[in-house]
Design a protein around this nucleic acid. Structure first.
Lengths: 138, 138
DNA sequence: TTATACTCTACATATTCGATAGAATTTATA
DNA sequence: TATAAATTCTATCGAATATGTAGAGTATAA
Protein backbone atom coordinates (compact mmCIF):
# COMPACT_ATOMS: atom_id res chain seq x y z
CA UNK A 1 0.00 0.00 0.00
CA UNK A 2 1.42 3.40 -0.95
CA UNK A 3 2.26 5.98 1.68
CA UNK A 4 -0.28 8.25 0.07
CA UNK A 5 -3.03 5.72 0.70
CA UNK A 6 -1.84 5.08 4.22
CA UNK A 7 -1.77 8.82 4.93
CA UNK A 8 -5.31 9.05 3.55
CA UNK A 9 -6.57 6.38 5.92
CA UNK A 10 -4.83 8.00 8.88
CA UNK A 11 -6.30 11.40 8.01
CA UNK A 12 -9.76 9.89 7.59
CA UNK A 13 -9.54 8.28 11.00
CA UNK A 14 -8.50 11.59 12.56
CA UNK A 15 -11.41 13.36 10.86
CA UNK A 16 -13.81 10.56 11.78
CA UNK A 17 -12.95 11.12 15.43
CA UNK A 18 -14.48 14.58 14.97
CA UNK A 19 -17.42 13.45 12.86
CA UNK A 20 -20.21 16.04 13.11
CA UNK A 21 -18.02 18.15 15.38
CA UNK A 22 -16.69 20.81 13.03
CA UNK A 23 -13.54 20.92 10.95
CA UNK A 24 -9.85 20.25 11.45
CA UNK A 25 -6.94 22.18 9.98
CA UNK A 26 -4.64 20.42 7.56
CA UNK A 27 -1.72 21.72 9.63
CA UNK A 28 -3.03 20.06 12.77
CA UNK A 29 -3.62 16.70 11.09
CA UNK A 30 -0.19 16.98 9.52
CA UNK A 31 1.48 17.43 12.90
CA UNK A 32 -0.58 14.89 14.81
CA UNK A 33 -0.17 12.18 12.17
CA UNK A 34 3.35 13.06 11.06
CA UNK A 35 2.39 13.58 7.42
CA UNK A 36 4.15 16.20 5.25
CA UNK A 37 1.74 19.13 5.10
CA UNK A 38 1.86 19.91 1.40
CA UNK A 39 1.49 16.24 0.56
CA UNK A 40 -1.46 15.97 2.92
CA UNK A 41 -3.12 18.95 1.23
CA UNK A 42 -3.21 17.03 -2.04
CA UNK A 43 -4.58 13.95 -0.34
CA UNK A 44 -7.35 15.76 1.50
CA UNK A 45 -8.32 17.54 -1.69
CA UNK A 46 -8.62 14.23 -3.51
CA UNK A 47 -10.71 12.83 -0.67
CA UNK A 48 -12.94 15.87 -0.93
CA UNK A 49 -13.33 15.50 -4.70
CA UNK A 50 -14.23 11.87 -4.16
CA UNK A 51 -17.04 12.96 -1.84
CA UNK A 52 -15.72 11.72 1.48
CA UNK A 53 -14.79 15.09 2.93
CA UNK A 54 -16.17 18.62 2.93
CA UNK A 55 -14.17 21.78 3.44
CA UNK A 56 -14.48 25.38 4.40
CA UNK A 57 -12.05 27.88 2.96
CA UNK A 58 -10.49 30.95 4.49
CA UNK A 59 -9.81 31.94 8.06
CA UNK A 60 -11.05 29.32 10.48
CA UNK A 61 -11.67 26.90 7.62
CA UNK A 62 -10.59 23.30 7.34
CA UNK A 63 -11.76 19.82 6.43
CA UNK A 64 -14.52 17.76 7.97
CA UNK A 65 -15.88 14.26 7.44
CA UNK A 66 -18.84 14.49 5.09
CA UNK A 67 -19.75 10.85 4.64
CA UNK A 68 -20.56 8.51 7.49
CA UNK A 69 -17.29 6.78 8.52
CA UNK A 70 -19.16 3.47 8.71
CA UNK A 71 -19.87 3.78 4.99
CA UNK A 72 -16.31 4.43 3.87
CA UNK A 73 -14.50 1.18 3.28
CA UNK A 74 -10.79 0.43 3.03
CA UNK A 75 -11.58 -0.96 -0.41
CA UNK A 76 -12.86 2.48 -1.49
CA UNK A 77 -9.75 4.28 -0.33
CA UNK A 78 -7.39 1.65 -1.66
CA UNK A 79 -9.02 1.85 -5.08
CA UNK A 80 -8.89 5.63 -5.06
CA UNK A 81 -5.17 5.86 -4.40
CA UNK A 82 -3.59 2.52 -5.27
CA UNK A 83 -5.86 1.15 -7.97
CA UNK A 84 -7.17 -2.37 -8.34
CA UNK A 85 -7.62 -4.78 -5.47
CA UNK A 86 -7.25 -7.64 -7.95
CA UNK A 87 -3.70 -8.87 -8.47
CA UNK A 88 -4.31 -9.12 -12.22
CA UNK A 89 -6.19 -6.56 -14.35
CA UNK A 90 -8.15 -9.35 -16.07
CA UNK A 91 -9.88 -10.34 -12.82
CA UNK A 92 -10.65 -6.82 -11.63
CA UNK A 93 -14.30 -6.40 -10.70
CA UNK A 94 -14.64 -2.69 -11.43
CA UNK A 95 -11.78 -1.98 -13.82
CA UNK A 96 -11.35 -5.01 -16.07
CA UNK A 97 -8.52 -4.92 -18.56
CA UNK A 98 -7.00 -7.76 -20.51
CA UNK A 99 -3.41 -8.63 -19.69
CA UNK A 100 -1.12 -7.56 -22.51
CA UNK A 101 0.80 -10.83 -22.47
CA UNK A 102 -2.31 -13.00 -22.56
CA UNK A 103 -2.64 -14.94 -25.81
CA UNK A 104 -6.08 -16.43 -25.16
CA UNK A 105 -8.08 -15.36 -22.18
CA UNK A 106 -10.59 -18.18 -22.51
CA UNK A 107 -7.90 -20.75 -21.82
CA UNK A 108 -5.87 -18.65 -19.35
CA UNK A 109 -4.81 -20.84 -16.44
CA UNK A 110 -4.59 -17.94 -14.01
CA UNK A 111 -8.04 -16.37 -14.12
CA UNK A 112 -10.06 -18.77 -12.00
CA UNK A 113 -7.76 -18.83 -8.98
CA UNK A 114 -6.86 -15.15 -9.09
CA UNK A 115 -10.54 -14.27 -9.34
CA UNK A 116 -11.09 -16.24 -6.14
CA UNK A 117 -8.21 -14.45 -4.44
CA UNK A 118 -9.55 -11.10 -5.55
CA UNK A 119 -13.02 -11.84 -4.28
CA UNK A 120 -11.86 -12.94 -0.85
CA UNK A 121 -9.52 -9.97 -0.53
CA UNK A 122 -12.23 -7.61 -1.71
CA UNK A 123 -14.68 -8.88 0.90
CA UNK A 124 -12.24 -8.28 3.72
CA UNK A 125 -11.47 -4.78 2.52
CA UNK A 126 -15.13 -3.93 1.97
CA UNK A 127 -15.97 -5.10 5.46
CA UNK A 128 -13.32 -2.91 7.04
CA UNK A 129 -14.55 0.67 7.29
CA UNK A 130 -13.11 3.85 8.75
CA UNK A 131 -15.46 3.23 11.66
CA UNK A 132 -13.77 -0.14 12.24
CA UNK A 133 -10.58 1.68 13.25
CA UNK A 134 -12.38 3.70 15.90
CA UNK A 135 -14.32 1.05 17.79
CA UNK A 136 -12.24 -0.66 20.49
CA UNK A 137 -13.80 -4.10 19.97
CA UNK A 138 -16.08 -5.64 17.39
CA UNK B 1 1.14 -7.89 -8.81
CA UNK B 2 4.20 -7.23 -10.91
CA UNK B 3 4.59 -8.71 -14.36
CA UNK B 4 7.67 -10.49 -13.11
CA UNK B 5 5.60 -12.30 -10.47
CA UNK B 6 2.84 -13.09 -12.93
CA UNK B 7 5.40 -14.47 -15.41
CA UNK B 8 6.84 -16.59 -12.60
CA UNK B 9 3.45 -18.11 -11.82
CA UNK B 10 2.77 -18.80 -15.49
CA UNK B 11 6.15 -20.44 -15.91
CA UNK B 12 5.66 -22.54 -12.79
CA UNK B 13 2.31 -23.75 -14.08
CA UNK B 14 3.87 -24.71 -17.40
CA UNK B 15 6.65 -26.59 -15.62
CA UNK B 16 4.19 -28.19 -13.21
CA UNK B 17 2.37 -29.66 -16.18
CA UNK B 18 5.55 -31.61 -16.87
CA UNK B 19 6.30 -32.47 -13.26
CA UNK B 20 8.57 -35.53 -13.16
CA UNK B 21 8.62 -35.63 -16.94
CA UNK B 22 11.95 -34.05 -17.76
CA UNK B 23 12.88 -30.47 -18.48
CA UNK B 24 11.58 -27.64 -20.62
CA UNK B 25 13.60 -25.08 -22.58
CA UNK B 26 13.37 -21.46 -21.54
CA UNK B 27 12.79 -20.64 -25.21
CA UNK B 28 9.75 -22.91 -25.40
CA UNK B 29 8.17 -21.51 -22.24
CA UNK B 30 8.89 -18.03 -23.51
CA UNK B 31 7.03 -18.68 -26.75
CA UNK B 32 4.12 -20.61 -25.25
CA UNK B 33 3.50 -18.09 -22.46
CA UNK B 34 4.42 -14.95 -24.40
CA UNK B 35 7.13 -13.89 -21.94
CA UNK B 36 10.29 -12.05 -23.15
CA UNK B 37 12.99 -14.71 -23.21
CA UNK B 38 15.81 -12.82 -21.51
CA UNK B 39 13.43 -11.63 -18.79
CA UNK B 40 12.20 -15.17 -18.29
CA UNK B 41 15.78 -16.40 -17.92
CA UNK B 42 16.22 -14.16 -14.88
CA UNK B 43 12.94 -15.30 -13.39
CA UNK B 44 13.65 -19.01 -13.81
CA UNK B 45 17.08 -18.54 -12.31
CA UNK B 46 15.58 -16.85 -9.26
CA UNK B 47 13.05 -19.65 -8.92
CA UNK B 48 15.89 -22.13 -9.08
CA UNK B 49 17.90 -20.30 -6.43
CA UNK B 50 14.81 -20.28 -4.24
CA UNK B 51 14.64 -24.06 -4.53
CA UNK B 52 11.50 -24.47 -6.62
CA UNK B 53 13.18 -25.48 -9.85
CA UNK B 54 16.13 -27.55 -10.93
CA UNK B 55 18.09 -27.13 -14.14
CA UNK B 56 20.40 -28.93 -16.48
CA UNK B 57 22.95 -26.93 -18.40
CA UNK B 58 24.28 -27.37 -21.90
CA UNK B 59 22.84 -29.06 -24.95
CA UNK B 60 19.44 -30.59 -24.23
CA UNK B 61 19.36 -28.87 -20.85
CA UNK B 62 16.55 -26.81 -19.38
CA UNK B 63 14.45 -26.29 -16.29
CA UNK B 64 12.25 -28.73 -14.43
CA UNK B 65 9.98 -28.55 -11.39
CA UNK B 66 11.93 -29.69 -8.37
CA UNK B 67 9.42 -29.14 -5.58
CA UNK B 68 5.96 -30.64 -5.52
CA UNK B 69 3.57 -28.13 -7.16
CA UNK B 70 1.07 -28.75 -4.37
CA UNK B 71 3.62 -27.40 -1.91
CA UNK B 72 4.38 -24.16 -3.73
CA UNK B 73 1.92 -21.49 -2.70
CA UNK B 74 1.00 -18.21 -4.37
CA UNK B 75 2.07 -16.58 -1.10
CA UNK B 76 5.58 -18.00 -1.57
CA UNK B 77 5.93 -16.66 -5.09
CA UNK B 78 4.34 -13.33 -4.27
CA UNK B 79 6.77 -12.82 -1.38
CA UNK B 80 9.73 -13.81 -3.53
CA UNK B 81 9.05 -11.29 -6.27
CA UNK B 82 6.72 -8.62 -4.89
CA UNK B 83 7.53 -8.56 -1.19
CA UNK B 84 5.13 -8.40 1.73
CA UNK B 85 1.58 -9.63 1.59
CA UNK B 86 0.74 -7.17 4.38
CA UNK B 87 -0.37 -3.73 3.23
CA UNK B 88 1.76 -2.11 5.95
CA UNK B 89 5.29 -3.19 6.96
CA UNK B 90 4.36 -3.01 10.65
CA UNK B 91 1.85 -5.85 10.29
CA UNK B 92 4.02 -8.12 8.15
CA UNK B 93 4.24 -11.62 9.56
CA UNK B 94 7.65 -12.56 8.19
CA UNK B 95 9.30 -9.22 7.51
CA UNK B 96 8.19 -6.80 10.19
CA UNK B 97 9.40 -3.22 9.94
CA UNK B 98 8.15 -0.15 11.73
CA UNK B 99 6.49 2.49 9.55
CA UNK B 100 8.75 5.52 9.25
CA UNK B 101 5.91 7.95 9.86
CA UNK B 102 4.64 6.16 12.96
CA UNK B 103 5.08 8.20 16.13
CA UNK B 104 3.95 5.55 18.61
CA UNK B 105 3.27 2.04 17.48
CA UNK B 106 1.54 1.04 20.70
CA UNK B 107 -1.26 3.53 20.06
CA UNK B 108 -1.32 3.19 16.26
CA UNK B 109 -4.92 3.11 15.08
CA UNK B 110 -4.09 1.15 11.95
CA UNK B 111 -2.38 -1.98 13.22
CA UNK B 112 -5.29 -4.04 14.48
CA UNK B 113 -7.43 -3.83 11.35
CA UNK B 114 -4.56 -4.10 8.90
CA UNK B 115 -3.26 -7.12 10.77
CA UNK B 116 -6.67 -8.74 10.25
CA UNK B 117 -6.63 -7.90 6.57
CA UNK B 118 -3.13 -9.30 6.23
CA UNK B 119 -4.05 -12.53 7.95
CA UNK B 120 -7.13 -13.15 5.81
CA UNK B 121 -5.25 -12.32 2.63
CA UNK B 122 -2.34 -14.50 3.68
CA UNK B 123 -4.61 -17.50 4.28
CA UNK B 124 -6.12 -17.25 0.81
CA UNK B 125 -2.73 -16.99 -0.82
CA UNK B 126 -1.27 -19.82 1.23
CA UNK B 127 -4.17 -22.04 0.30
CA UNK B 128 -3.70 -21.42 -3.41
CA UNK B 129 -0.87 -23.56 -4.76
CA UNK B 130 0.59 -24.11 -8.20
CA UNK B 131 -1.32 -27.36 -8.19
CA UNK B 132 -4.57 -25.38 -7.73
CA UNK B 133 -4.12 -23.91 -11.21
CA UNK B 134 -3.87 -27.36 -12.79
CA UNK B 135 -6.84 -29.16 -11.31
CA UNK B 136 -10.08 -28.53 -13.23
CA UNK B 137 -12.31 -28.51 -10.12
CA UNK B 138 -11.70 -28.44 -6.40
C1' DT C 1 -7.02 45.13 4.87
C1' DT C 2 -4.75 41.40 6.56
C1' DA C 3 -3.81 36.87 8.05
C1' DT C 4 -5.40 32.37 7.47
C1' DA C 5 -6.49 28.29 5.16
C1' DC C 6 -7.95 25.73 1.22
C1' DT C 7 -7.24 25.09 -4.22
C1' DC C 8 -4.74 23.98 -8.12
C1' DT C 9 -0.87 23.06 -11.19
C1' DA C 10 3.72 22.32 -12.07
C1' DC C 11 8.03 20.56 -10.98
C1' DA C 12 11.82 17.67 -8.81
C1' DT C 13 14.05 13.66 -7.40
C1' DA C 14 14.65 8.90 -6.22
C1' DT C 15 13.34 4.39 -6.84
C1' DT C 16 11.31 0.59 -9.15
C1' DC C 17 9.71 -1.94 -13.22
C1' DG C 18 10.24 -4.18 -17.40
C1' DA C 19 13.32 -5.43 -20.31
C1' DT C 20 17.77 -5.94 -23.08
C1' DA C 21 22.84 -7.04 -23.81
C1' DG C 22 26.51 -9.75 -23.74
C1' DA C 23 30.08 -12.51 -21.97
C1' DA C 24 30.98 -16.84 -19.37
C1' DT C 25 30.06 -21.60 -18.42
C1' DT C 26 28.40 -26.23 -19.12
C1' DT C 27 27.16 -30.21 -21.85
C1' DA C 28 25.68 -33.50 -25.63
C1' DT C 29 26.94 -35.04 -29.82
C1' DA C 30 28.76 -35.05 -34.55
C1' DT D 1 37.84 -32.20 -30.26
C1' DA D 2 34.95 -28.76 -32.24
C1' DT D 3 30.55 -26.94 -32.21
C1' DA D 4 26.06 -25.70 -31.14
C1' DA D 5 22.80 -25.40 -27.54
C1' DA D 6 21.47 -24.06 -23.23
C1' DT D 7 21.93 -22.08 -18.62
C1' DT D 8 24.44 -18.50 -15.56
C1' DC D 9 25.58 -14.04 -14.13
C1' DT D 10 26.19 -9.04 -14.15
C1' DA D 11 25.49 -4.67 -16.04
C1' DT D 12 22.77 -1.36 -18.10
C1' DC D 13 18.79 1.42 -19.81
C1' DG D 14 14.43 3.93 -20.54
C1' DA D 15 9.92 4.72 -18.78
C1' DA D 16 6.91 4.92 -15.25
C1' DT D 17 5.72 5.62 -10.53
C1' DA D 18 6.18 7.24 -5.76
C1' DT D 19 7.07 10.81 -2.69
C1' DG D 20 7.34 14.79 -2.01
C1' DT D 21 8.13 20.61 -2.82
C1' DA D 22 7.01 25.13 -4.61
C1' DG D 23 4.31 28.75 -5.48
C1' DA D 24 0.57 31.31 -7.15
C1' DG D 25 -4.43 31.79 -6.70
C1' DT D 26 -8.93 32.05 -4.13
C1' DA D 27 -12.08 32.47 -0.27
C1' DT D 28 -13.21 34.06 4.30
C1' DA D 29 -13.27 35.87 9.16
C1' DA D 30 -11.96 39.40 11.94
Amino acid sequence: MSKKCKYAVKALIALAEHYEQGNLFTADISKAQNIPKKFLEQILLELKHAGYLGSKQGYGGGYYMKKNPAEITVADIYRLFDGNIALLPCVSLLRYESCDDCLDETTCALKREFAKIREQTRLIMVNTTIQSFLTPEE
